[in-house]
């Protein structure tokens, strides 16, 4: 049984059946990609994992526990972190503060009324955040305003913030969208490194085939709200159904 088990999930928006009969199993410590043409329901599916949307039918289990009906912060505290399509960081805060916040959330849980102690005196959290910035290769930017970072650095910071919480499952929603080639390659390398060195499962939604085929061990192809095939990258590349539904439309130098 996988770390994330999706069974018969369906979701309807008015007259549009966005998802139907989605079955998916993400194996622990693997990198699992979900691909599909525009409007295939990838983002809707991801939103069903994190508590932003509740599916009309079916179930979503994380480590055997249902995620349905839970709030985003509850799901996060269970060990699921999410990276957004456009990096969601705290732009008004410094890079160090950005990193401190998930470290506090990891230590203190979803709410802690510590209005009297100073941030600077919390050594354990400070050390952790500092270590995370070193791991992310961002320690020299610690005092910088997060909004002033480059797109690639924002993404790196966001991933670092997610990792600071030691999630069991990391969800990425088109992490390289709108990035230059160099930044994309850096992100791929970073994700590879994370997947190789940490005890973590990565589920990734991606448009960029280069990213998908460099990272994923399993790929699910979604078309019109239903999974078409699930297989290894090599088999997906040559799959006739996939070519027809998806890859055939784009030029893939595979």
């Amino acid at each position: 049984m996988g770390i994330l088990e999706v069974k018969d999930v369906g979701k309807r928006f008015g007259g549009l059946q966005a998802l139907s009969n989605v079955n998916l199993s993400v194996k622990e410590n693997s990198v699992h990609a979900i691909i599909g043409p525009n409007g295939a329901g990838k983002s809707t599916l991801l939103n069903c994992f994190v508590g932003k949307l509740i599916p009309d039918t079916g179930s979503v289990l994380f480590e055997g526990q249902s995620l349905l009906g839970r709030k985003p912060h509850e799901i996060n505290q269970m060990g699921v972190s999410r990276v957004f399509q456009t990096p969601e960081i705290f732009g008004d805060l410094s890079v160090m503060e950005n990193m401190l916040i998930p470290c506090f959330a990891k230590r203190d849980g979803s709410f802690e009324l510590n209005a009297y102690g100073s941030v600077a005196s919390q050594r354990d959290v400070q050390d952790r955040a500092e270590q995370m910035l070193i791991d992310m290769n961002m320690i020299d930017k610690r005092e910088e305003h997060a909004a002033a970072l480059s797109r690639g650095d924002k993404r790196r910071l966001e991933i670092g913030m997610c990792l600071a919480q030691e999630p069991r499952l990391l969800l990425l929603d088109e992490p390289t969208a709108g990035m230059a080639r160099a930044d994309t390659n850096n992100t791929i390398d970073l994700l590879k490194e994370i997947s190789d060195t940490r005890d973590i499962t990565i589920a990734i939604i991606e448009h960029d085939m280069h990213v998908v085929f460099s990272l994923a061990q399993r790929i699910t192809v979604l078309a019109q709200g239903t999974p078409l095939v699930e297989d290894t990258p090599d088999n997906i590349k040559g799959h006739p159904k996939v070519r027809e539904a998806y890859l055939g439309e784009t030029q893939v130098a595979a």
Partner: peptide, 20 residues
């Protein structure tokens, strides 16, 4: 305080707060 920092985080990006 950490509380004050969380409040500034809420002002900056409430979505990220919830997903943290």
């Amino acid at each position: 305080s950490p509380f004050g920092m969380m409040l500034r985080a809420i002002k900056s990006n409430q979505q990220r707060v919830n997903y943290t």
